[in-house]
Amino acid sequence: MIETLRDLGRSGIGAFESLGRSALLFFYTWRGMGEVLTRPRLVLQQVYATGVLSLVIISVSGLFVGMVLGLQGYNTLVGFGAEEQLGVVVALSLVRELGPVVSALLFAGRAGSALTAEIGLMKATEQLAAMEMMAVDPLHRVVAPRLLGGIIAVPLLASIFNTVGVWGGWFVGVGLLGVDDGSYWAHIETTVSLRHDVANGLIKSMVFGVAVTWIAVFEGYDTVPTSEGISRSTTRTVVHASLAILALDFLLTALMFD
């Protein structure tokens, strides 16, 4: 009985401790951003590793999500004789919700886990400690460019996801199911608003970008430097990042679209 209570308390305190550590890491990393700007190549490398290499999975997923939306939307709308509104269904669901959320989830799995594993292995092989010995702050040299690179990459990936998805829906709706081409685009243009839908979707994906990369670099930096510890941290990154994305999505949606 006492044992269980003790364990519960320990894990509770542990959770708050790691929350505190992650907040401090975020703060210290941002303080080092000025230093990163003098070495843009480091950021470039990270945009390549997280963004460019995620391009294929993001565009293929976007295409299929758009196609599924086209198919499902058509089947529902045709019952009301409103299949002309298919473009609106596809575009609004992508731009407002699915684009930012799904691309961030994919990013967490594809790039976030890699970030954690990379930094975790650096810690396990004492590369981070070696940097400190050379008076190089690993937070500024290793963590900051990765954080910035992820934050740059996610909104761009979400935009690509959205655009490919709208074309995927167009392909199914107009190409295969015979919705009128003109009304597909015309209804999108008259309904989707640049400020309310497109801009808010972009803000969402920026927030997700910060959250996912922050969690990923923190889990890597905070890992138990053993092979088991790294594997646990990588799993935690994907789980925590996914939960954070979905919870933040609810919050942001409640704030943006009232």
Binding site: V166, L194, V198
Partner: peptide
């Protein structure tokens, strides 16, 4: 992609 979204997929 963002430009296309702004120009073609919005008002």
């Amino acid at each position: 992609a963002l430009l296309i979204l702004a120009l073609q997929v919005s008002d």
